[in-house]
Amino acid sequence: MTKLSVNINKIATLRNSRGSDVPNLVQFAKDVQRYGGQGITIHPRPDERHIRYKDAFDLKPEVYTEYNIEGNPIESFIDLVLKVKPTQVTLVPDSVDAITSNAGWDTIKHKDFLVDVIKEFQKNDIRTSIFVDPVLDQIEGAKETGTDRIELYTEAFAHQYSLGNKEAIIPYIACAELSNSLGMGINAGHDLSLENIKFFKNEIPHLLEVSIGHALVAESLYLGIENVINMYLHRLK
């Protein structure tokens, strides 16, 4: 079964909007796991506009499933991850002012940088994953970095699927097959939703984990968080 990791950034955004501790981020993470979620993902950014660096430490003792910290490996992020020691770190090439992630790594251009960062995390027993576009030479480049996994950036698929273009899955299938043949695990995330997750999961071979936040939280406003998590789990079987 493909694991569901719930990105809780939007819960932090809601909390921060009132300057209080409601909703409580740690309690929400505990509830997600109690409802069947198989991982917690956070994506702290330098301006801490949603997840704060302190949140990463507060969550560590409460996340008994997989703990995934995403972000651009600037110095402060690297230091945070090495101190918290999550299950997995996902490296994302965000610009400082990015509203959300909008591109994968150029694994060829940034190979040397990624090699050094990945070695440091692996030396500390932290599984590594890098955010990549569904392009075959970028998958080959990812292999050269030494990463344990890739995370396929799925925004293009989600957009095309919403327009009825199911052929948008084709490059993702090819990249998943190549990644598996090269010995890298396969994660995926960005704009996956209840609408498209079953099709994506059924088509992508060897899919280990999906990270879903914005859509899952939005869907929960109407359907309830426990119900939505179980709907995802059912689709991911």
Rank of each mutant, 00 (worst) to 15 (best):
A158S: 15
F77E: 02
G71K: 07
Y172E: 08
N230M: 02
I99G: 00
L91Q: 02
I150R: 03
L82E: 11
R149L: 12
E120M: 14
Y67M: 05
R235L: 03
N102H: 13
N124Q: 13
A168Y: 10
L114N: 07
D55S: 07
I186T: 14
K60S: 12
G104R: 05
E155P: 02
K83D: 14
K201W: 03
D106F: 10
V84F: 06
V217T: 14
I126A: 03
V63Y: 02
D97Q: 13
G37T: 09
L221N: 07
L163I: 10
Y64K: 15
G146C: 11
D58K: 12
L236T: 08
G224H: 08
I186K: 05
F121W: 06
L208T: 09
S5P: 00
F77W: 15
S162Y: 03
I173D: 07
F113L: 10
Y35N: 09
V92A: 03
D191T: 11
E219S: 15
Q138N: 08
Q88I: 15
Y222I: 14
M1T: 12
H43Y: 10
K123V: 02
H190G: 11
Y172V: 05
D116T: 13
L59S: 07
T87I: 03
D55V: 06
N230S: 03
I74E: 13
D58Q: 14
T128N: 04
K10I: 02
D133T: 04
V81S: 09
K201N: 15
I186M: 04
A98C: 08
M184T: 09
I169Q: 06
P73G: 12
E70Q: 13
K85W: 02
F121E: 04
G183V: 11
S95K: 15
I186Y: 05
S193F: 02
N165P: 00
I51S: 10
Q160S: 14
F113E: 15
K201F: 05
I126E: 04
S20V: 10
L14D: 01
E203G: 02
Q38G: 09
I204Q: 06
F199D: 12
N180W: 07
D55E: 10
L178T: 06
V228M: 04
L192K: 09
Y161H: 13
K83L: 09
Y35K: 04
I186V: 15
P73A: 12
Q138K: 15
H206I: 00
N227M: 00
E203D: 02
K109T: 10
G183D: 10
V228I: 09
P134F: 10
L91T: 07
F77V: 05
S17E: 12
L114G: 08
F121M: 13
L221S: 09
H190C: 11
L233W: 02
S17K: 12
F113P: 00
I169S: 03
M1R: 11
W105R: 03
L208K: 14
